[in-house]
Each structure stands twice: as C-alpha cells, then as structure tokens.
Simulated scan of single mutants.
Amino acid sequence: MTGRRVAGVNRYSHDVLAKGWQQANRPTAVKTPVARDMVLEEPTSGFVGAVVGWENGVVVLEDRKGKRRSFPFGPNFWLEGKPIDLTAPARSAPSARDKAQHHNRTHTASGSRVGPAEKAKVALPSRIYVEGRHDAELVEKVWGADLRHVGVVVEYLGGIDDLPAIVAEFAPVRGRRLGVLVDHLVPGSKESRIVQQVTGEHVFVTGHEYIDIWAAVKPARVGLEAWPDIPRGTEWKKGTLAALGWPHADQADVAAGWKRILGRVTGWKDLDPRLLTEVEKLIDFVTEDHLDRES
C-alpha cells in the first residue's frame, strides 16, 4: 500500500522532541489567591483540607478529621479538580476591631475552628513531652485549646538527658504513643544522638533549631527586625534582654522578660512557621491511632 499525501496537511510539521512537549497538553495552573475555607488537595501527599490560615508563604489546611498540615504556596494544589498556583491574597486594609474579636471567638490561637461546647474529654493514653518550661508555656498558649479538644496532655521535660528513662518508663505501644519536642535540635549534637536512641514506631521526636524558644516568636512582636546575635560567653537570654533595653541582671529578670515576650503572642501568626509545622506533626502523630478508630 502506498502512502497518500493530503494537500495542506503535514503530520510531521512539529518536532515531538522539542522542549516542553511533555507539558503541551497538560492543564495550566491558574494563579489563585488563598482564601479561608477554600478546600484544596495537595497531590503529592494526597492531603485534602480546608484553609484555616496562612502566613509567610505557608498555608495551613485542616481535613475532615481535624488534622492539620502546612504547605508552601505555589503551583502544587488542586481546587475543584483543577490545578492552581496558590498565591497570597491581595493586601487589604486592617480589619476592624470587631472583626478581630469575632475571629477570636470562632478560632483558637492556633487557627483551628472553635466547635460547639462539649464536655471535658478523658485524656488519651498518648502524651506529648516538651523540653523547657518556656517551650511548654508557649505550646499551651497557642495550642492549648486544640490539645484539650483532642484529649492530649502535654508534660514538661526538664532536660534531654532524662528522655531515655522517660521513654522506657512510658513503654509506648500502638494507641499509647509518645511525641517529644526538643530544644535546639541540630545534626551532630548531643540532643540528636539521644533522639536517635529513643525514636521508634510509637515514638516521634522532633525539635527546632533556635538557640532558644524565644526566637520562635517573630522579632517584630518585641520591636526588633531580627533577634540579636549574642557573643559567645554571654547567656543568650540575658544578652537578648540587654539588647532590648530590658532588665537582665538575674533569673528574675529573665522570667519577667519571657512573660513580656509571651504576652505579645496572641496566636499562630506571631510565631515562626517552622515551629508551627513541627508542633502540628506531633499532634498528628499522637492522635493518629485514636482518629483512625473514630473514623
């Protein structure tokens, strides 16, 4: 059989190996400003949830079970079956005072929706330990309502050296998980070596790289552009208080300084998003078995 040539038609007029041929028939991700209650899918993880907040290029999604995950803005979401390039909303005038107060009544400090009033829950067998008293106070202020809602108790870990004994005594198993937030967790440190010893199927340890939890609070909340670099040999907290022009002579001054800093924190928007992500991972981990049983 001989081939036929149809006038005006050349099936081979395009180079199939030309750059971009793979994307030729793919739908284009449309730039879409983020909005509260928008239901998005993050296809890489398969997580689907409603938008409950955003900050510094990170959006927080909450699924139907109440689990929350944070993802960066960008062309990595689906909305109503179509790909979108999620962007920050256009800047608007500051909210009126009554709107802010209304938000406080309908959302917790972490950005979660406030549900109807309910009876106090019996604490779950699973626990979260937080290293450092100031760390524990910050977690309570921002996530306390969420933790009480799911029945998770947060306990104070005096120091990382105590962790192996705590894990051994707790004896984690399925339905009795242990999550731990460690201070100043960096690769190669003593803290990281201890974490490797205790991490297991029912133990999840995470942390932050701040030299102190104070630095998880956005410096603008205390009138700084950035947290100060404190010289070696100077206690970081006292050096920071000195840079702020606050009293810094003794531990009483340190305690008073932290109280002032904590008082400037009203919710998740006042914190570095990296801390938000790690705490949310802990809450997801310790509630996973219990949420599975409820579904």
Rank of each mutant, 00 (worst) to 15 (best):
A90D: 02
A90I: 00
A90C: 00
R91V: 07
S92G: 07
A93Y: 10
P94Q: 11
S95Y: 12
A96S: 15
D98C: 14
D98M: 14
K99H: 14
K99Y: 09
A100L: 15
A100R: 15
A100V: 13
H102Q: 15
H102E: 14
H103M: 10
H103L: 14
T106L: 10
T106R: 11
H107W: 08
T108Q: 09
A109S: 14
A109V: 13
A109G: 13
S110R: 06
S110D: 15
G111M: 07
G111Q: 04
S112Q: 12
R113H: 13
R113V: 05
V114G: 11
V114Y: 07
V114L: 08
P116A: 08
P116W: 04
E118Q: 07
E118Y: 11
K119P: 09
A120G: 14
A120M: 09
K121V: 11
V122L: 09
V122M: 12
A123W: 00
S126W: 02
R127F: 00
I128E: 03
I128W: 02
Y129T: 00
Y129E: 07
E131N: 11
G132H: 12
G132E: 14
G132K: 12
R133W: 13
R133C: 10
H134V: 15
H134C: 10
D135C: 15
A136T: 09
E137W: 05
L138E: 03
V139G: 06
G144I: 04
A145D: 10
D146A: 05
L147F: 01
L147E: 01
R148E: 14
H149L: 03
V150M: 02
V150S: 08
V150E: 08
G151Y: 05
V152Y: 01
V152F: 00
V152T: 06
V153G: 01
V153D: 06
V153K: 04
V154S: 00
V154L: 00
V154C: 00
Y156S: 08
G158W: 01
G159I: 02
G159W: 07
I160D: 05
I160T: 05
D161G: 05
L163Q: 00
P164G: 07
A165G: 07
V167D: 08
V167G: 12
A168N: 10
A168V: 05
A168F: 02
E169F: 02
F170E: 01
A171H: 11
P172K: 07
V173G: 07
V173P: 04
V173A: 07
V173F: 04
V173K: 15
R174S: 06
R174K: 15
G175T: 09
G175Y: 11
R176I: 14
R177S: 04
R177M: 03
L178K: 04
L178I: 08
L178P: 06
G179P: 01
V180R: 05
L181S: 01
L181R: 02
H184G: 07
L185A: 02
L185I: 06
V186M: 06
P187T: 02
E191G: 13
E191M: 08
S192Y: 07
V195A: 09
V195D: 03
Q196W: 09
Q197F: 04
Q197L: 06
Q197H: 11
V198C: 08
T199C: 13
G200F: 15
H202D: 15
V203A: 09
F204R: 04
F204S: 03
G207L: 06
